[in-house]
Simulated scan of single mutants.
Amino acid sequence: MDNKQTETSKDLTFTCPHCQTVIGREDFEGHYKVCGVCNYHSRLTWQDRLKLTVDEGSFIEFDQNMDSKNPIDFPGYVEKIAQLQKECETREAVVTGKASIAGLPALIGIMDSRFMMASMGSVVGEKITRLFEYATGNRLPVVLFTASGGARMQEGIFSLMQMAKTSGAVARHHQAGGLYITVLTDPTTGGVTASFASLGDIIIAEPGVLVGFAGKRVIQDTIGQVLPENFQSAEFIHEHGFADMIVPRSELRDVLSRLIRLHRYPREAS
């Protein structure tokens, strides 16, 4: 799982970083950006993920003009944010909104690892909290695609506070009988794993993705034991009960729509 990169290049070929197979880019993109040889699932941009998941033309974005501040005056932070906003065509590391999946209304959140490794700052936490509050008030399911390096050190304690805030919003949604589906994508780590990513009523993982809190080497040094080779992989966490299912990208949209329908959505707003 080393050297995984979000694929945005327009080269004619794609070299799989897992098995080194050279694939025609047209074939690669037509196969959901998944290697047909080893099943490596490339990281997706939020635009790619949205296109593969929701009905065309159905997405309405929430809080799209919300900007990060610099609460601890971290050097260069404001400039870095401005640069990434242009490169990623979004103002923060998560895009949220309302859409439909196979005709079923749902709220969607998509984290984009290109944006500071989708680290969780105050705006990420606020957007996700508002998403769940809207879902609770309007009796809608939430589908959240996680991909993060964890808390955003450039915001210090303000970043860590988002763990409690988002978890509280998820809890209120759960208490109101709402459905929350987490889709773990590569990588989901740190404070995101320790908060809203692990709180889904149903937790789905894409094949082979990295999911964990601390790094494998840190854990090994702490407990003084050698960990399994596939430790923190989607397959490992599924085997040990952390994820409910592993779903290939090509099947994910159908699985999401079936789960939403199974839980008797749409429901009338209260």
Rank of each mutant, 00 (worst) to 15 (best):
N138F: 07
V94S: 03
I101N: 04
R130G: 03
F242A: 06
G168S: 08
L252F: 07
S257A: 15
S159W: 04
F59E: 05
Q162F: 00
H41G: 05
H18R: 11
E126C: 07
M111S: 10
D2H: 14
R261H: 13
G150H: 03
L199F: 03
D186R: 05
Y265E: 01
T188H: 05
G76T: 05
G36C: 13
Q162S: 05
V124W: 14
Q83I: 11
A197C: 05
E133N: 11
E235F: 07
E26R: 12
I260Q: 00
Y40H: 15
D67G: 04
D112T: 08
S257V: 04
T188Q: 04
H31M: 01
T185E: 15
G121D: 10
I101E: 05
M120F: 07
V192L: 10
Y180W: 04
L256F: 08
S159C: 02
D11Q: 13
I23W: 09
V22R: 10
H173S: 04
V211K: 07
E155L: 03
I81T: 12
M116I: 14
A169N: 02
A269Y: 06
N230A: 10
T185L: 02
Q5R: 14
I181W: 03
L179D: 00
F62V: 00
G36P: 08
S250E: 15
N70K: 06
T182G: 11
K127S: 01
D73W: 09
G24V: 07
F62C: 00
Q85V: 09
H240L: 00
I237A: 00
D27V: 13
Y32R: 01
L210Q: 11
K127D: 00
E79M: 06
E26N: 12
E29V: 15
D254K: 15
G241E: 01
Q64S: 12
I260P: 00
G241R: 04
V209H: 06
I23P: 08
H41A: 12
F74P: 00
S68T: 11
G76R: 02
M1S: 10
L199E: 07
R49N: 11
M153N: 11
T222N: 11
G76E: 04
P187N: 09
S119W: 08
C88Q: 02
I246R: 02
E7W: 15
D254L: 11
I260F: 05
L12E: 14
K98M: 14
